[in-house]
Amino acid sequence: MGTISVYESITLDGVMQAPGRADEDERGGFAHGGWGVGYEDDVLARFAGTAMAASTGLLLGFRTYKDLLRHWTAVTEPNPYTDALVSAPKHVVSRDASTDLKYPNSELHAGDAHLTVRRLRESWEGQLTVLGSGELVAALDAAGLVDEYVLLIYPILLGSGHRLFADEHRKDLRLIEAVTTTTGVLACRYAIGRLSPVT
């Protein structure tokens, strides 16, 4: 059976919406797109590279899949993301069975996320990594299908926007790894479940 790792960039007040580009996600009148730009450094690049190297496939909501692949396949200058995204096995969750997946190495999982992803997780070997895909993450979290969270926490307060844990119930997390970048981003990896008390 596989594991599911959720990899997200969030602000200090928990906003996950549109960290990469101004026009990435303007739903709800969100005007702060691109808030994560300018915080990159070698520490963050190494952490991200290590986290992604552990992945054997990507698990994406359809909107994130379409946006990510459309953007990175249009980028002309050399970068470490385009080839990795195109070549990675991509498992795309959609409620619509007629959803068209136009990029290579993509497989559709149509229906309710907690059912389709549970079947995928049971048959998968290795780690499936979720990028973005806020609605999918909420469904997986509610169904107890998330094994770990990898969070890049930026020293920014926005006060508005879609939050990763907007309607969260209590959840205990166990810190596995934490790195602070030179730009103040805190990169953390959490497993689900609290530490056992020392006796």
Rank of each mutant, 00 (worst) to 15 (best):
Y39E: 03
G57A: 07
H32A: 13
T50Q: 15
H32E: 14
R46M: 07
V37R: 12
G29Y: 07
D41T: 10
H32Y: 11
G29F: 10
D42I: 00
T56N: 12
G33Q: 08
R46I: 04
L59Q: 03
A45T: 15
V37D: 04
D25A: 07
M52W: 09
E24K: 07
S55I: 06
F30E: 00
A53Q: 14
E26Y: 00
G36I: 02
E40T: 06
Y39Q: 02
E24A: 08
F30D: 01
L60Q: 04
A48Q: 14
W35L: 05
L59N: 02
E24I: 11
E24T: 09
S55Q: 02
H32C: 08
Y39L: 10
S55K: 01
A31Y: 00
T56C: 04
S55P: 08
G28F: 09
S55M: 05
F30K: 00
G34Y: 11
E26N: 13
A54Y: 07
E24M: 08
G28W: 07
V37N: 03
L44P: 05
A54R: 15
G49N: 11
L58Y: 15
G61N: 06
D41L: 09
L44A: 15
E40Y: 13
G36R: 01
V37C: 03
R63C: 01
L44N: 11
G34I: 10
F30I: 00
F47H: 11
A31K: 07
G38T: 02
